[in-house]
């Protein structure tokens, strides 16, 4: 899937922290971005690209944080499907993603398994 660039705006990061109700003080006293923002971004890019149908489930998630992201930073998310298998009437799709900083340094490696319902 083609790389997608996103800017980690202060508003978007604050909205994420409010949504998950993360009370960690480190985000109140620095411009560091919760690493799960990058995981959420990676998954969002996957779901958008694959046009995932209603009822799709999240089976598993691996996240490997390789570097910190800062508010205002631009990041690029790229991914590839590594498994696409029909099993037991459902489709199991595994996607590996990388979120990189502007200088190319890797911030996050992720792998997710999504389960698409049979009738979709």
């Amino acid at each position: 899937m083609p790389p997608v660039e996103r800017r980690l705006t202060r508003e978007a990061v604050a909205e994420y922290i409010r949504a998950v109700e993360d009370a960690s003080t480190i985000y109140q006293t620095s411009d560091l971005v919760p690493p799960t923002v990058l995981g959420t971004l990676a998954l969002g890019v996957i779901l958008e690209h694959l046009r995932i149908p209603p009822g799709t489930l999240h089976g598993s998630q691996d996240l490997e944080f390789k570097g910190v992201a800062h508010v205002g930073q631009s990041v690029t998310c790229s991914g590839r499907v590594v498994q696409n298998q029909l099993r037991g009437g459902s489709r199991f799709i595994a996607v590996e993603s990388i979120v990189s900083a502007g200088d190319g340094g890797v911030l996050l490696r992720s792998r997710c398994l999504i389960i698409v319902p049979a009738e979709a």
């Binding site: 009370a23 960690s24 480190i26 919760p34 690493p35 691996d62 996240l63 944080f65 910190v68």
Partner: peptide, 18 residues
């Protein structure tokens, strides 16, 4: 994060099943 702060952000790995 609340327990390990920046160390988690820099080197954390998580593998979960729902």
């Amino acid at each position: 994060t609340r327990r390990f702060g920046r160390s988690w952000l820099e080197s954390g790995q998580l593998r979960v099943r729902f």
